[in-house]
Design a protein around this nucleic acid. Sequence first.
DNA 1: CTGGATCCCTGAGGATACTG
DNA 2: CAGTATCCTCAGGGATCCAG
Lengths: 107, 107
Amino acid sequence: MLQILTLVGDKWTILVIGQLRDRTLRFSELHRVVTGISQRMLTRTLRQLERDGLLTRTVHPSVPPRVEYALTQLGTTLLESATMLAAWAATHRQEIIDRRRRFDGTC
Amino acid sequence: MLQILTLVGDKWTILVIGQLRDRTLRFSELHRVVTGISQRMLTRTLRQLERDGLLTRTVHPSVPPRVEYALTQLGTTLLESATMLAAWAATHRQEIIDRRRRFDGTC
DNA sequence: CTGGATCCCTGAGGATACTG
DNA sequence: CAGTATCCTCAGGGATCCAG
């Protein structure tokens, strides 16, 4: 349970599957659109999500290589929860930052 | 955004506020009911959640000391999303574990 | 273009012992 | 009871270079 929660609560997991909501994306597209992720962590995240059956990895044998990632059925079921969490984070971001400042000030 | 997602996606955050859903809890009660958390991480998690305004920490001056934790309004708004994520994890736990085994087997 | 391999650093996190 | 302090280990994660 803890490891599953670690997986689905991971920020990169949430951001990646959020981007795959309504279209498949290539590696470089994901790298561009998932703000702040390094190449290394994107690779790792994608491998894990593929391993866990949340997305599929399709290699198109061409030059240059073209690899597309798409959500699976299982991945889609996670999408709703993950999206809610991301939305909450976006909504209350400033509020939390302010509270942190206030808290740190009064201590 | 990344730091907020790191906060609300954290496994301990999700489990702790899930336990505070409908009642305030003492430190020792949380330690007992949040499976697998160490005293150290419970303390840290609670401090951070207090700092970020997700829960309140109330010290009752008595012997032995009695400290109670309760969700704030803000914490309650996170509850729904966090609960969904935890429910997803619980529902698909075995499925993911199986997929991992299969994936590791075929490689 | 899509990664894999390597190096390095920091922080997460457990175990244990101690205190008001 | 509710922590704090200390030590130690390991995974997260960036940077860089290399390859098919």
